[in-house]
Design a protein around this nucleic acid. Sequence first.
DNA 1: GGGCCCGCAGGG
DNA 2: CCCTGCGGGCCC
Length: 337
Amino acid sequence: MAPLSEYERQREENIRKNKELLRSLGLDGPLSSMLEPKEAARKKESKSRKRKAEQAEAPEEPPAKARRADSEKLKDGESAPVEGVRRSSRNTGKVVDYKNEIKSAHSLPYAYSSGVKTTENEGPLGREGGKRVHDPKKYGSIPGVDVGTWWETREGCSTDAIHAPWVGGISGGKDGAYSVALSGGYDDDVDLGYAFTYTGSGGRDLKGTKNNPKNLRTAPQSSDQSFDNNFNRMLLRSSQTKKPVRVIRGYKLRSRYAPSEGYRYDGLYAVERAWMEKGLNDKGYLVCKYAFKRLPNQPLIPVRGEVEANEAADEDANENEESQSDEASNSLVAESL
DNA sequence: GGGCCCGCAGGG
DNA sequence: CCCTGCGGGCCC
């Protein structure tokens, strides 16, 4: 096997850390956030973990630390409150058929979950002559736009008020972000479907230099990001207000939850945590990062292919081996497109 | 595939 | 008006 490029090596490292963080937030169990609240509460908490070291890097957000301290008081066998459920441990009582759950994702009005194009759902009905009929500057779902709705371009997402900007990844207001787009702009973000990490904006030279002026929409990272940036602040705010955030996934995202073409509305998520870390760039410029978690009681997200779906179910069954879970999750993000 | 340039929506 | 930004189309 050829040696990894420095970029790929750094990428694997960042992905590993991001998954570690998701795990510390209890977001490492497939579909855990999609269970009914009662089911989730019944799940017993396993392995109270003490991960603190890597969180030293995460400033801003005492609330998360307080919650963590609380849930650590729980002993094995005790139920955690719904808010504090941290792992989708093996279900002790009721048997959950993950395979069926995942398969049911394919009954969505999805477009490209497996590379098959359907054209009947290029945006919902009721859009009049290409004009927007709903306000994108509000929180939560948009009337008439089902989870799984698909568009060929970002323009469609904008017209149907799911995600207003044609280019920008973040849209929001004073109480947090309205919507975000996952489109592979940052290669070290982790996507588990029901949870993902997301990188903020800023720190790019869109105008180039004096000698080499440009007029770009995206560019390589060339300085630190910060929460002073409006968009980054919006998402930080979301982590406090817990307002629901609409999420679209685009074809450029390196994830098996990405559509093979176009853009798909995947429903509502909440921002669980915000922090800063070194981004995937040679100089190690800091970026703002966020952990998202899908809100319960929504249609499942399409995945690419039954085989991978079944692997995900098996992974959950084998979760008591941490190394296995690491391995499985790695392949989940790193390959298979 | 990569480089370049452009429109556009939104926020200040 | 100014600025930004996980697009898109065109060219090669």
